[in-house]
Design a protein around this nucleic acid. Structure first.
Length: 241
DNA sequence: AACCGGGTCAACCGCGTTTTG
DNA sequence: GCAAAACGCGGTTGACCCGGT
């Protein structure tokens, strides 16, 4: 047979995470890292499924997350990468340190998509929506509007934005900025190595553990821990401190 | 002050891929 | 090689917040 079931849906908590749950998860992952997500909730004393734990960690609790709105450069990079990769949010996120695929996806759907449409650019194809609404002309209005959109965030969020690298019609005053973004995007594209610092990923390196608490407890396999947990009779509510 | 509509984002769902026995 | 489960990803949902009326 294959693997054991991830989690029985019975008795698994859902919905928003509480501070207490966050605390448990952070405490556990920072101390032990994660070997397999299936084991995490049990060992951390959480009534969640591993999937939920993984999502909570990667999208919200990770210590290296930047939080907050995307910067202009990040936003432009997202657009460029989206033009090349499409809705491959995880791949796009991999090029943006401290950003999650969920965050980028949300930002795309709530901000960038609308901006591109306002600019007369199809957010899917990154081509002009129609020939009447040229990117250049619609851009000026879009710039004004999107500035008001972004009052809270950044002051130059639209500078240099053309919608995609396939859509090179930047006005001269934005050319240098665009070129800069293009170079960045191109270098990222050409470079298969992700620029994101992977050290946080908690496929924990030996150094991470030795600095935190000594040798890694996982040793590549956590099944023994589950067995151990079971033997101790901790059960689902067993807290591993 | 209350209501409404739009915006935001955390979390869930479902599916494809990868891994494991 | 196959089947089953874990994993990871992208799409979607729903609760909350905020500004406008």
């Amino acid at each position: 047979m294959g693997r054991q079931p991830c989690c029985d849906k019975l008795g698994v908590k859902r919905g928003p995470w509480t501070a207490e749950e966050d605390k448990k998860l952070i405490g556990f992952l920072l101390t032990h890292g994660h070997c397999c997500w299936r084991a995490v909730p049990k060992l951390a004393g959480l009534l969640r499924c591993g999937k939920s734990c993984r999502l909570r960690w990667t999208n919200y609790l990770r210590p290296d997350l930047k939080r907050g709105l995307l910067t202009d450069a990040e936003e432009q990079l997202v657009i460029d990468l989206h033009a090349r990769l499409g809705n491959k949010w995880s791949k796009i996120a991999a090029k943006l340190p401290g950003r999650t695929d969920n965050e980028i996806k949300n930002h795309w759907n709530t901000h960038i998509k609308k901006k591109l449409i306002k600019m007369g650019i199809d957010p899917v194809t990154h081509q002009p929506l129609n020939k009447k609404a040229s990117p250049t002309t619609s851009r000026s209005t879009a710039t004004t509007e999107s500035k008001s959109d972004n009052q809270k965030s950044t002051s130059h969020s639209d500078e240099g934005r053309t919608g995609s690298s396939q859509n090179h019609s930047s006005p001269p005053d934005q050319a240098s900025s665009k070129t800069c973004h293009d170079q960045l995007a191109s270098s990222l594209w050409e470079d298969d190595l992700p620029i994101v610092d992977d050290s946080w990923l908690l496929q924990p390196s030996e150094e991470d553990y030795s600095s935190l608490m000594g040798p890694s407890p996982w040793d590549g396999n956590c099944e023994w821990l589950l067995e151990f947990d079971h033997d101790l009779g901790l059960g689902d509510s067993g807290v591993f401190h």
